[in-house]
Amino acid sequence: MASYEIRPYRPGDEHAILETFNAVFGEGKEDFEPRTLEEWRWGFERNPAGNRIFVAMQGDVCAAQCAALPFRVTFRGKPATITQGVDAMVHPEHRRGLRRPGLYVATARPFFATFRGPGRDVLHYGWPVEPAWRIGKTFLNYEIVRTQTVLFAKPPEADQRMPDRVEEIARFDDDVTALYGRCAKDWGLSVVRDPAYLNWRFFDHPRFCYRVLGLRHPSGELRAYAIFRCADFPHPNCGLVIDWLVEPNDIEAGELLHEALRVQARRDGAESMLAVFPDWSPWFDRFQIWSWDVFGSDYLLIGIIQDPHYDTWWLRKHWWYQLAELDTV
């Protein structure tokens, strides 16, 4: 039987990781654009919250990887970290490398043993497809937090002016942290929206370009923002509301930004628009008032909750998340 060295990432592994990533995720896809080293470095070296990577190496080949992107969060008012599982993979030539439960699970178990527990990541989450969900459920204690609903709308049929007070933001400053603090005061768990995270996530992204639309108070301080991108996800030419940070009682700001998103979607040629909100959020209801329809999706929001005092029931009602927390968009 093949033998593997299963261990945390070491500098220099990225070349083998990248090679396996492109072999695995490009398999059978003619339109696949290989991930570059720059993209890998953005995700795993320059993430302000660090990285979480375990690999199964055989010689110079990365045979399997269990990895996650960490995010700094506010968890019941205190700082903590959560992680999004990404890039789960086993090299095509090593898929029979270990008997059931297989090489991925063998790599994932020490990953979770290392990063879970008191004082470590409080939640590991993801939006897996069903086969990955089954493996995770059987061997890694994945639990469904919710079956994910999404909001859809059609962009306007004619060109419109961008609302006067909405501006495009070139980079986030410290005032976004204050805006986040005002929005997050009733949220049990949320990724910290501060310049370090937001500038890394959106302005420094090596592949995707985002439109950041903002409103300011008369004092110049940031009042609200929405982030938009057109993508071929979940279907071609879809205008995605990637992030939305508006105080729940600031309906006027919400209306202006919503109108700005529609204008931007029209300008970018989007055929539909999609947004994701926790269903307890007032914005989930408000978007429906603005004629967005709710649909059930195939996506499962899963979590491995590291703190035994909390469960999926709590997460479902207290976790603020957006598409921003999904690396692939």
């Binding site: 079956t147 609903t149 926790p278 269903d279 307890w280 989930f284 209801d285 429906q288 008032i289 329809d293 709710v294 649909f295 059930g296 029931w313 479902r316 009602k317």
Partner: peptide, 24 residues
């Protein structure tokens, strides 16, 4: 109703709005 059913879309087209519950 199931959020994957035609009825789910029908009710919204007739003015219903969706909200979450505590139930699984």
């Amino acid at each position: 109703v199931s959020d994957r059913s035609g009825e789910f879309a029908l009710f919204q087209s007739l003015g219903f709005r969706v909200r979450g519950t505590d139930e699984y």
